[in-house]
């Protein structure tokens, strides 16, 4: 292709955009809405996953031993635990440490009344997992190990976290898929109107000997430009909104912020911007290509 032809095609694509302003605006708005929702869900999911990850790191299984168990057996059990693939790390908490912790947390100065350690048999392993979903398997295993009296677990938290995470992912994928279909449909309509407005010009082009590529490319470029503009607007809006929302949460729900750890806007936008623009341009390309192939056989 000649450079002059390349610029001519781009120019015609831009002219098309302005020629049917209202349909172009409608298409940009739909793609914008679609990618805005995508961005929104992406930001929520990315943050949620971050929170889940942090929470998962805090989810533990605690193992207590039979009364009068020997120190060697405890160490043997420790080795068994280390061998399990689910385990990310384990901590041994001796009976004395357990009592110290209990005193600090619940008794304060009243603890002075105790002369012996009431939790003498409460030495334990605190086990942290790689993944919450692996918890049941590990618990079943541990319950069968000789010398273990009790296995404490936080199953509710674990399954809730995985469940909510999956639910958000499914719902957002569903909504985004529907919006994608609508966007492709609208772009293809916009391009079709562009084609019908320029029907006369296209027929002259065909008579003069324009190739399929030459006739079609301005319309495909129109679609891709609409897609790109439709992607940049919502990404910009989300960028501004994101900071504001995080700021708001930090101020209004300051107690929550100790539990929830948010990603910074830059961590999210590196991926969001490129994925959104790619999707916008992709939607535009697809939508216009469908119409152009259907209606512009030269």
């Amino acid at each position: 292709m000649r450079i002059s032809t390349f610029f001519y095609t781009i120019k015609q694509g831009c002219i098309n955009i302005f020629r049917n302003k209202w349909f172009t605006l409608a298409s940009i708005a739909t793609i914008g809405a679609c990618l805005f929702l995508f961005g929104l869900f992406y930001a929520i999911i990315a943050n949620f996953q971050n929170i889940v990850k942090t929470a998962q790191e805090g989810v533990s299984v605690t193992v207590f031993f039979d009364e009068g168990i020997s120190q060697e057996r405890i160490e043997e059990i420790g080795t068994l635990i280390d061998k399990r693939p689910e385990v990310s790390k384990k901590e041994f908490i001796s009976a004395d440490e357990a009592w110290e912790g209990f005193k600090e947390e619940y008794l304060g100065e009243y603890a002075d009344g105790f002369t012996e350690n009431p939790l003498a048999d409460s030495a334990s392993y605190e086990i942290y997992l790689n993944d919450v979903s692996m918890q049941p398997a590990l618990v079943t295993y541990l319950e069968g190990v000789d010398g273990i009296r009790l296995v404490n677990r936080s199953e509710v938290t674990a399954s809730t976290l995985t469940g909510v995470n999956a639910l958000i992912a499914y719902v957002s994928v569903g909504i985004i898929a529907i919006l994608f279909a609508v966007s492709i449909f609208l772009i293809s309509n916009t391009v079709m109107i562009g084609i019908s407005v320029r029907k006369e010009e296209i027929s002259i082009m065909k008579y003069i000997g324009a190739t399929d590529f030459f006739v079609r490319s301005p319309f495909v470029i129109e679609g891709m430009l609409i897609g790109a503009i439709g992607a940049l607007i919502p990404v910009g809006i989300i960028y501004v909104l994101y900071n504001k929302v995080i700021e708001y949460i930090m101020v209004e729900f300051s107690t929550l912020t100790q539990l929830l750890s948010f990603l910074s806007v830059d961590e999210i936008f590196g991926i969001l911007l490129s994925v959104s623009v790619l999707m916008g341009v992709g939607i535009g390309f697809l939508g216009s290509m469908i119409t152009v192939r259907k209606h512009l056989r030269v």
């Binding site: 027929s203 003069i208 000997g209």
Partner: peptide
């Protein structure tokens, strides 16, 4: 076909100008 049509010039009754 486009290459073939470049050998022809066409004039219509209704001019068909842009």
């Amino acid at each position: 076909i486009p290459k073939f049509r470049r050998n022809l010039g066409i004039v219509f009754q209704d001019f068909r100008l842009l």
